Amino acid sequence: MSQSPLSDSSEELVHADHHRLRVLRVREGRIEAAELNDCVAEETPIALEYNGISHATMLATPSDLEDFALGFSLTEGIVDGVSDVRGMDLRQECNGIVVELEISSACAARLRERRRAMAGRTGCGLCGVETLCEVLRPVPAVAGGQTVRIGAVLQAMRGMRARQSLHDITGATHAAGWADGHGKVALVREDVGRHNALDKLVGALARAGLNATPGMMLVSSRASFEMVQKAAMAGVGVLAAVSAPTALAVSVAQRANVALLGFLRQDDATIYTHPERILP
């Protein structure tokens, strides 16, 4: 493996994140006569391999794939830190892209054991219960009790929306952003999948060395429990969503010491957990 996830490489496969085509518009119930140019977001199978073993395949927008692979590895607990990823290569295959990661021996052994445990219980009578335990895995509580002003959170959400360039031309992608405690947006990542966008953001934070810096995460979607889990695994204690959280997301956020906000629209928001950390 020749490429490091900590540095960009000119040899990285470059794929368009959107596709242009001709369409017909319908206005007021009538089909317009002339075709127009339009853009649709790309959705590509992305396979992740760890030390030569295939682990997961997802449909994602084929941009920022090194961020995506690193972020997924961190939020899923496959690796503990950036240094556990020794190399990364991208390979075109069939109709998708394979991301080959070389991880430390300790992390690889842990992943193999995890895969064996999952395979061993698929035929048992209690496999559904045990699978739920795997999905709802405990996540470490975010250290500290960072406080932010509600004005900074609202400002950050507006700042992220202004940087959703792929959404602006396709209308089909979610975004995840990171802002400092003053509401200044530093990073935004987009993808057709909301989980993928957040994984890309986590990877970008780690590669930029910002994962230990106090700040907040923003998502242009609802806040499911997986989104809260990923924020907590990244050590970010404030998560703000455009839409609503689920009951499970609120429960996980409370336990993980994540201040969770939803329905961020214009100057409005709803605070669901740890309201003492959201200041006027």
Rank of each mutant, 00 (worst) to 15 (best):
S7R: 13
S9H: 07
S9D: 15
S9N: 11
E12F: 14
L13R: 08
L13G: 11
L13N: 08
V14F: 08
A16E: 09
D17R: 01
L24R: 06
R25L: 12
G29I: 02
A33C: 04
V40F: 05
A41L: 00
E43P: 00
P45Q: 00
L48D: 05
Y50I: 02
Y50P: 02
N51E: 04
I53F: 02
A56L: 08
A56S: 12
A56I: 09
A56F: 03
A56K: 13
A56R: 14
T57I: 13
A60G: 01
T61E: 09
S63A: 13
D64C: 01
D64H: 03
L65C: 12
D67I: 02
L70P: 12
L70I: 11
G71N: 11
F72D: 10
F72A: 13
S73E: 05
L74N: 11
L74G: 04
T75G: 06
D84K: 00
G87A: 12
Q92N: 15
N95H: 15
N95D: 15
G96D: 01
G96Y: 15
I97L: 15
V98P: 07
E100N: 15
L101T: 13
E102K: 13
S105T: 15
A108Q: 14
R110P: 10
R112N: 15
R114F: 07
R115Y: 08
R116L: 11
A119H: 12
T122D: 04
G123Y: 04
G123Q: 11
G123T: 09
L126M: 07
T131A: 12
C133W: 10
V135Y: 12
L136I: 05
A143Y: 01
A143N: 02
G144E: 03
G145E: 07
V148M: 10
R149C: 08
R149H: 12
M157N: 09
G159K: 05
A162K: 05
D168S: 13
I169N: 03
H174N: 09
H174L: 07
A175E: 01
W178M: 03
D180Y: 06
G181I: 12
H182Q: 13
G183A: 08
G183N: 10
K184H: 14
V185A: 04
E190M: 02
V192E: 00
R194D: 10
N196C: 13
D199N: 15
L201C: 04
L201T: 06
G203L: 08
A206Q: 08
R207A: 14
R207Q: 13
L210Y: 09
N211T: 08
N211D: 15
N211Q: 14
G215S: 04
R222M: 09
F225A: 07
M227T: 07
M227Y: 09
M233Q: 12
A240Q: 04
A241V: 03
A241M: 05
A241T: 03
A247I: 10
A247V: 09
V250T: 12
V250G: 03
S251E: 14
S251V: 10
A253S: 02
A256V: 01
A259C: 10
L260M: 06
L261H: 04
L264R: 03
L264F: 01
T270M: 12
I271K: 11
I271P: 14
Y272W: 12
T273R: 06
H274E: 05
P275S: 14
